[in-house]
Nucleic acid binder design. Structure first.
Lengths: 244, 244
DNA sequence: GCGTGGTGTGTACGGCGTATACCGATCGGT
DNA sequence: ACCGATCGGTATACGCCGTACACACCACGC
């Protein structure tokens, strides 16, 4: 009965909040997730293997399955753990400041853990730590005269932008690391063989003008914040119209 | 010499544009990619296997490797093929109409092919068909008084939003399909065990209010377009300031 | 007629996720 | 103080995966 069936039936998160349940265990879902996060940070998403996690814990490959139902659940745990880095400090007030702070911290988190870009997206919604972040952002939009649908749409718009923008930035960084490229120039040199064929077709004149003449081409933070402020300006419009 | 080394050295895209190179082959990179896309559409991202693709082509597992360097290259091909569905029809004019049309079509494309959400992001940048879409969107922002950096930032902002928003929508749909849930109500019922524990903690009052009282909770198109118009409003601000 | 090179095949290797059966230690009830 | 139940970790095994490598075939230019 007890634990095995519990692992099947009860929500992962409910199980997690009963630390007293297993005092004589050397493993725990938290330790497993931490080791997995370490591997992912150091060696990339694909290197996270049930067997490698177990090895790093000095334990047989199957041992982890007593605490985690499978790889999917491990992923959910990794996301939840790492999302603890999201909560911004005190002293922020107002919806714009709140959403902006979360956006910046989300970007930092995803750049610190580039493997997040590979995670199946639905997992992102349902972990408790992520829900807490969502709650705080939603609450900052409360009381401005918006209906709940519009509040949620605004929240989602900002977060969709942040995820989309940071995913491509993180994935590029990770790709650079895999290839051993250290700088933007080195990357351009590495990508040149692929790129030059495309550019020489003459089909992409505007794009070409950008690669030649842009001043902020390598300033990822500027690009991110410029886009972010666009989205926040749009939300501000929504808020004004809602207030009226 | 010839083909094997060529497969290693020359860009995939350059190879593709020489159809005359191999007249007596029964396979081709295009056919392989099409079959792979079919499998991904029907059975999901994880079901795309070199072996399964080969089987569907009635060919030995290793045969595909004569035309495609490995699974990564197959992915790039799949993305490029499917991106042909992006180009919007005629009769659109102005940056806002152009960006909006691409956004809507990108969403439709990603919902038609939910496996796109699982693709490593850098591949998205460098395929010829995607570059063509980028070029057309960038060109629509040209001549408005924006510098190239700002043009690119605006383009990226819209596309980041579109990808982020549609990824989570597509991933949710795919998850529903995996679970056999057909409707929004069925999904809520299926998610309830996970959800109710979280909600009953009382930590997410605003979120709870949304799940109870929202009118457009299941209108994904409305949510997408509301967010999209936010972002476009933000870009409009950028354009106005650039014009001044 | 014959080498040559492009195309598909067969075999094999190492790694993966995980089902299943197992074993010793520990605990609750008596 | 005992004893079954249960829990944490183990050992073994299966069927899949991507792909390296050596080989067989066939069409062609000479």
């Amino acid at each position: 009965m007890a634990k095995k069936d519990e692992t099947d039936d009860v929500s992962l998160w409910e199980r997690l909040e009963r630390p007293a349940a297993a005092p004589r265990a050397s493993l725990s879902a938290g330790r497993i997730a931490d080791v997995a996060i370490g591997i992912a940070d150091r060696e990339g998403f694909a290197a996270v293997t049930m067997r490698k996690v177990a090895a790093e814990l000095g334990v047989a490959p199957m041992a982890a399955y007593r605490h985690v139902n499978g790889k999917d659940e491990l992923w959910a745990l990794m996301i939840d753990r790492v999302s603890g880095e999201l909560a911004p400090g005190d002293g922020i007030s107002g919806w714009r400041e709140t959403l902006r702070a979360y956006a910046l911290r989300t970007r930092e988190m995803m750049l610190r853990h580039p493997w997040l870009a590979h995670m199946p997206a639905p997992l992102f919604a349902l972990t408790p730590t992520r829900m807490a972040a969502a709650e705080r952002q939603l609450a900052s939009l409360d009381g401005l005269g918006l209906d709940v649908d519009t509040m949620m749409a605004a929240f989602r718009a900002v977060n969709a932008y942040v995820h989309g923008a940071t995913q491509s930035e993180a994935a590029l960084r990770q790709y650079m690391e895999e290839q051993g490229w250290q700088s933007a120039d080195e990357t351009r040199r590495g990508l040149a063989p692929q790129m030059s064929y495309l550019m020489e077709t003459g089909r992409y004149p505007t794009y070409r003008r950008y690669t030649r003449g842009a001043a902020r081409k390598d300033d990822a933070a500027w690009q991110f914040e410029t886009g972010l402020d666009c989205v926040l300006d749009g939300v501000a419009g929504l808020v004004e119209r809602g207030r009226a």
